[in-house]
Design a binder for these strands. Structure first.
Lengths: 200, 200
DNA sequence: TGAGTTATGTAGCGTTCGCTAAATAACTTC
DNA sequence: GAAGTTATTTAGCGAACGCTACATAACTCA
């Protein structure tokens, strides 16, 4: 053990836990319980460390969540994966929504989207502020992708995708099945196809 | 003043505040801040009373919110208003979604739906439990209305409406305009029309 | 080996939360 | 008036929150 801290030239007492593994664990915890409902006590107990060690490594609960959220958005359903130029934009959106239906229901105790759910806290909530910044960046990227082939309706189409994904994340949290969400995604896609093809 | 307490035969010291007015005030407060973020201190300060008076009148924060939420769902967009038999079911749904777009953005500091936003708290949250019960009843009513004219797709259509309204409420909270949400509602309606007419 | 550095364990700070016990004030009924 | 009832004010409880000061332990470098 303690392999993770054997970075050569590291001075001082070595860490007794793996910060990267702690981020993975924290991601699951935040996804299950939400930002506000997950306390430091629960985090440190799950990690097998004391609060002081947690704060020495991550600074604050908000900073810890921020690192987790950044990694999450980079890994889960990156937009580049869906928006390719070899097919109609609607097909890319359809695949995105369908994949969201599956992702959001893949793990029963981690339903929905980590970021979109954190967004639903009250205005001043630190977790929400972090999620908001991340969601805005992703939203702009999405709009840019859509604008490449449907500039006239890019804004409204982005709004529809955003609303649908937020609603699907909420529904997943409320227990709606994968099949149910896939059907919702399909219906939303019909509307989007009409919107986009009507603008061509 | 103190007219509200002059119920004949009321014994004991009369109330110095109007409980019904306190429910109206509380509704606005919960709608603005959310269940969890609104504390007893803020409530009692807004009402001009002390915590003890609040608890003597309402019992608990959860019971207070429950009365407010029940009144809210009974008053705001009752389903009977939309689902009439003199028009296609899709038109009723379209009007419901359009009205939601307007309602959710009508007051800038009270964006979205009181119930649907309370639903987004963590599992054990008292406000969420209350909202969940209310939302489930409304959902069943909605499904029954749709099933009257489109039984084969009532479940999935209900899912689509639920997801869309949850997403619209979230979007409204995030600052999306009324016009934007109306367009989203229109796009969702296109998908729903295809779904429902395709099942006839 | 000593100095410097970093992480750990212990213990608890200060704040906010929902809520309440106890005394008192204001009313109705007898 | 006296007795009974109910709402008020005052004051603060107990628990949970995020977070931290402090002493100590474990390492690297000179």
């Amino acid at each position: 053990m303690t392999d993770h801290l054997l970075s050569k030239g590291a001075r001082g007492r070595p860490r007794q836990f793996d910060p990267d593994a702690a981020l993975i664990t924290g991601r699951a915890l935040f996804h299950t319980h939400g930002y506000a409902a997950l306390g430091i006590a629960a985090i440190t107990e799950a990690l097998g460390i004391r609060p002081a060690s947690f704060y020495a490594a991550f600074g604050s609960k908000a900073a810890y969540f921020e690192r987790i959220a950044e990694a999450y958005v980079a890994e889960v359903m990156p937009l580049e994966t869906f928006f390719r130029d070899d097919r109609p934009i609607v097909d890319s959106i359809a695949e995105l929504l369908g994949e969201a239906a599956r992702r959001y229901t893949a793990f029963k105790d981690q339903a929905g989207c980590l970021i979109l759910e954190a967004l639903r806290a009250h205005r001043g909530d630190e977790g929400r502020c972090i999620a908001l910044r991340i969601a805005q960046i992703r939203r702009e990227k999405l709009q840019a992708f859509i604008a490449r082939s449907a500039p006239a309706v890019a804004l409204i189409a982005t709004e529809v995708v955003t609303v649908t994904m937020a609603g699907m994340s909420a529904a997943a949290r409320d227990g709606v099945s994968c099949a149910g969400l896939e059907q919702v995604a399909a219906v939303a896609t019909v509307g989007l196809r009409s919107l986009i093809e009507g603008s061509a």
